[in-house]
């Protein structure tokens, strides 16, 4: 029988603010194959792309008449990194964010471990906060991983040189790295939209697949609607809007108008979805 009990009723040694620390949650996540798998994929993707670019060098580069970063992908490691980001923005990174955020609560519910965590007790708001933070750390880490691997592997394959834009303007390496950091930062914020949407769904459903799939599906629907010109400026308010605004960072001087709008809009979406998830989870009866 524990002799010491706190005035709040908690047992001695229990402090709500020490429950489910970020390091513990990350340890839990990294014990999962899924997490390790995503990071392995993040490392593999740039390597696969390098191999593909080496194989198909220049032959079909012209077949795609779109103004495209692929045309200059092999100019330097930095260029290759930009190409990787360009290629992954609209699908791959979306899925990664949706996975890390959407899997959080729903998978615990599916295993049935959620109720034990809540009875520990990890206060509900804290549980969500920690899960959210862990998902963010994992997602951003994945984004940084793919960028760094692309940068290093691309540099080795194509040389450490300046950025060459499709119109033949070059940006020095130092400046280029700074801008690349800005792009990664922008993407990290913009992808929060899909992440937090998945997170909200994760608190609603007990099926991780539904949360992840639902968020990705929603993004795809908006991406398709985005192609409908008739919708006009309504499209500017889509969660997918300004998805590629980070390419503005290639300009000189940088026009940050779209970036700013993108950041604000993403933060608003993220805040709304996060608020919805907290609201729902705080009221919900946990029956799983």
């Amino acid at each position: 029988m524990s002799s010491s009990v706190q005035s709040t009723g908690g047992v001695a040694g229990y402090r709500p603010e020490r429950t489910l620390r970020l390091s513990v949650e990350l340890r839990r996540q990294f014990k999962r194959r899924r997490t390790v798998g995503v990071f392995a994929l993040m490392v593999a993707l740039p390597l696969v792309l390098i191999a593909a670019l080496q194989l198909g060098a220049s032959e079909d580069a012209q077949s795609n008449s779109r103004l495209n970063l692929v045309d200059v992908a092999t100019a330097s490691g930095l260029n290759f990194t930009l190409f990787v980001l360009f290629a992954t923005t609209s699908f791959f990174l979306v899925v990664v964010y949706a996975l890390f955020f959407g899997d959080t609560v729903a998978s615990e519910a599916q295993w049935g471990s959620l109720r034990y965590a809540l009875a520990t007790p990890v206060p509900r708001m804290r549980l969500l906060r920690q899960k959210w933070a862990a998902a963010l750390v994992l997602s951003v880490a994945a984004l940084v991983t793919v960028t760094v691997v692309a940068l290093v592997a691309g540099g080795i394959a194509f040389g450490f040189a300046d950025i060459t834009t499709p119109i033949g303007i070059s940006i020095g390496q130092g400046d280029g790295l700074l801008r690349l950091a800005g792009m990664v930062g922008y993407l990290a914020v913009h992808l929060l939209v899909v992440g937090t949407l998945a997170f909200w769904l994760s608190t609603v459903t007990d099926a991780p697949l539904a949360a992840v799939g639902g968020a990705v599906f929603t993004m795809f629907v908006f991406a398709i609607l985005d192609q409908v010109e008739q919708l006009g400026s309504i499209r500017d308010f889509f969660p997918t809007a300004e998805e590629f605004a980070w390419t503005d960072l290639l300009q000189t001087p940088v026009d940050s108008a779209d970036l700013y709008r993108g950041v604000i809009q993403s933060l608003v979406y993220a805040a709304v979805f996060t608020a919805l998830s907290f609201r729902h989870f705080s009221r919900r009866d946990v029956t799983s």
Binding site: T8, G9, G10, G112, L118, P121
Partner: peptide, 26 residues
Amino acid sequence: GHPATPGAPVLSRLGSFVEGTGLQPH
């Protein structure tokens, strides 16, 4: 003596096994 509301610290004196093991299979 403490109300058993969600997340109440007094629940730290409780050990539970209810409906399913809640173990992480991996």
